[in-house]
Design a protein around this nucleic acid. Sequence first.
DNA 1: CGGCTGTTTGATGAGTGTCAACGAATGTGG
DNA 2: CCACATTCGTTGACACTCATCAAACAGCCG
Lengths: 250, 250
Amino acid sequence: MSKTLMKAMNFDQNKKIDSAYQNNCGDCELCTHTVNRRRVRVDSEEILAIENIIQSHTQAEKSQIIYKTGQPFTHLFTVHSGMFKSIHTNNKGEERIVEIFIPGQVMGFDGIRDGRYKTTVKAIHSGSYCIIPYQQLNELAFKHKAIQDRLLKMMSEKILQFEISHSEFNAKQKLVHFIQGVSELYYSRGFSAKQFPFPVSQRDLANHLGLAEETLSRTFAKLKKDDVLMLKDHQITIFDLDALDDILNT
Amino acid sequence: MSKTLMKAMNFDQNKKIDSAYQNNCGDCELCTHTVNRRRVRVDSEEILAIENIIQSHTQAEKSQIIYKTGQPFTHLFTVHSGMFKSIHTNNKGEERIVEIFIPGQVMGFDGIRDGRYKTTVKAIHSGSYCIIPYQQLNELAFKHKAIQDRLLKMMSEKILQFEISHSEFNAKQKLVHFIQGVSELYYSRGFSAKQFPFPVSQRDLANHLGLAEETLSRTFAKLKKDDVLMLKDHQITIFDLDALDDILNT
DNA sequence: CGGCTGTTTGATGAGTGTCAACGAATGTGG
DNA sequence: CCACATTCGTTGACACTCATCAAACAGCCG
């Protein structure tokens, strides 16, 4: 691992990468919901049954593929540490990064519909993830209402996110909206909303946001010049959280 | 109802509006899935239990609101005839048409996550819809695995649709992609893929696609000039289905 | 040190939003 | 059923954002 990335991950003498920006078991989307912008555990004994079927903390190297488009859908995955990306390939062969995942998030929902993954998921940098056999989860959901509800609510949440992100945005707003979303996610899990690791390359981010690499670079430059936020050494620093809202409401 | 709209709805001496482009009970997304581009009934006795909790065929006048942002989430709805639109209002107060629904589709999934609808749904023109009490459906899903699976698969399908629609498109491709989607939906339900009612105003469609009204108008004009498709009297006619793919793959 | 890969900067043009005006279609009230 | 008002769609001129192309620069790796 490079020095800058270590720094990005908040690596120092006291904190190891995996203990800093990681997700504790029981704190992922499966077992928590958002109350007042914070993730809190769902108050249900049954839901802990999930822990028994999860295979925890599998390591992934940079660019390692977790699952591929077309493969039989067998598992859901949660991010334990690091960041992952899901990629959709259209019939022109162009790749589009559909989602970028941080610790605690669940990956693989698009495979449920017909039993095949419809995207490819890769590790952005080295990280770790948990493996959830879907069939077992599905059976648990049929035994425990709380789990069934959690599953349905997670998917409903994802649908809502997509609905909202369809809004009209210019380049600056697209970027700010994305950063704000990640900031909220980190905050909801007890990390700083103003500073967090960001190992995503600008190429990937530009692709995800539907912008040219050059436009994204220029947009970052403007936001830094205006003292709104900064990307340095694979770490985002937000100087002015309120300014983010202002930009989105212009 | 206006004369042109009657025509659009295929209204003549022999066919009533409601019998032409309507959805038969048991043929909506809840009870069918897609096999070879066609909707077929899910082979399961239990799933018919849904019919017992559905309240069928409620009339809706043009612009009638089915549910509103912020209201407690109590029901899902399926379109029986006509078209409906879901609207999301951002914090600038701007309205964005998130989805446009045709007969057989289910509305209201975004309310599951926290018990409140997050969008507003309105009838585009007069139509009819069915009402499904969510709590009862939820309990049925807990009793019958087939129903639980159907629910999860429907939501997975919707997630996939959003993921894919995030692709990079120019104005022409946005329009063609949308029309192709509607065409597929009609086809999958046994109607013509080449000609179907289209009561959506260009203002609404432009809003939905994230285009200016003028750009949409010019795009329709180009597609007509190139003998690809035509919008007339609230009816879409596709001259060349293959051309749609060509446009999307350019 | 040299070769990648990722990022930045500048110049240019295509696509699309905006403004303005008009025409067509639809709805309303007398 | 007609006259008017209103909404909806079309067309042209123009401005602006952003993609594209080209090239240089910076960081990282062997």
